[in-house]
């Protein structure tokens, strides 16, 4: 049984070793933000950070990330206050339905951690593996650039 460290808290998880991290987070730990989109690592809706690196939780066994630092969207905010990046998504009204947004913010956070002042092009390339069907991509890019500006 893996011990998972999610957003700074440690959880003993009663799930089979090969259970994808996505299902453990959503069902065992009641974490809302990582979304099931494809189960194939094609859309990025399930993206979370593991030791700061973006990971597709739908194809990552929970046991493979035991003991490592897992961060979800919920882990970015502090005391109910949105992080700079989250606030930038609010300020830019960067979505329509918002289903893909959690994965996109997590992927963008990984980018900003590694490259605090990315260009428009660098943001687009970093997010290229995250799909948005509503067509809010430009707003999301603006939000990431705004967060970088303010960061």
């Amino acid at each position: 049984m893996p011990v998972l460290k999610v957003n700074g808290r440690t959880h003993d998880v009663q799930a089979a070793e090969d259970t994808p991290l996505l299902y453990v987070l959503r069902n065992d730990l009641a974490v809302n933000s990582p979304k099931y989109g494809c189960g194939l690592a094609q859309c990025g809706a399930c993206t979370v950070l593991v030791d700061g690196q973006p990971v597709r939780s739908c194809v990552t066994a929970a046991s493979a990330v035991a003991g490592r630092d897992i961060t979800t969207l919920e882990g970015l905010s502090a005391g109910g206050k949105p992080s700079k990046l989250q606030q930038a998504f609010i300020d830019e009204q960067a979505m329509q339905c918002g289903y893909c947004v959690s994965g996109i913010i997590m992927r963008a956070q990984a980018l900003l951690d590694q490259n605090p002042k990315p260009t428009d092009r660098e943001v687009r390339l970093a997010l290229d593996g995250n799909l948005c069907r509503c067509g809010a991509q430009n707003r999301m890019v603006r939000a990431v650039l705004r967060a970088a500006q303010e960061g």
Partner: peptide, 11 residues
């Protein structure tokens, strides 16, 4: 939108 960027239960 705030609920959606904070990971609240909205979907």
């Amino acid at each position: 939108i705030p609920a959606k960027v904070m990971g609240d239960q909205i979907f």
